[in-house]
């Protein structure tokens, strides 16, 4: 599914909430209110293009990461969702090729290899390419988020 927007990921009335546990209860409510029960620690989401479009709410990656989601694989992301996910150190937004979408199925076991920029599908013994993170972004990921990132160049 493409264009999953942040109003679906975490609807407007919950924006006043800042407790991750409370937010997690409403994750993806606009699409599937049962969603929080369906995911568990270490899960990935595989989605269509332009994931996370709409508002700048950091509540969206917070709610998803609180449910245990470690990465979202999609052909493209809306820019603010992408930044929030990386800079907050919540989860990895991973850009994949459009055709990879059709090769991954519900419950497949996946592994992300950031050194080789590859995604391994252990269930189907296949691997797919991922877009490498730009250098600076990779450093922020390694630091665990922008707040913890310190770089001599930028003081």
């Amino acid at each position: 599914m493409s264009n999953i927007d942040t109003d679906v990921i975490i609807p407007g009335p919950y924006l006043k909430i800042h407790d991750p546990k409370e937010l997690a209860k409403h994750a993806m409510e606009g699409l599937d209110p049962e969603f929080p029960q369906k995911v568990s620690e270490g899960d990935f989401m595989v989605c269509g293009s332009n994931f996370g479009c709409g508002s700048s709410r950091e509540h969206a990656p917070i709610a998803l990461s609180q449910l245990g989601i470690k990465a979202i694989l999609a052909p493209s992301f809306a820019r603010i969702f992408y930044r929030n996910a990386i800079d907050g150190g919540y989860l990895l937004p991973i850009e994949i090729e459009q055709q990879t979408l059709g090769r991954i199925f519900d419950k497949d076991e996946l592994e992300v290899d950031l050194n080789q920029n590859k995604i391994l599908n252990l269930t189907r013994t296949e691997s797919y390419v991922m877009m490498p993170f730009p250098k600076l972004v990779a450093k922020i990921v390694e630091a665990g988020g922008l707040i913890y990132y310190r770089n001599a160049e930028e003081g």
Partner: peptide, 8 residues
């Protein structure tokens, strides 16, 4: 931008 970016 999001919260973390603004905090930064």
């Amino acid at each position: 931008l999001g919260h973390t970016d603004i905090a930064y």
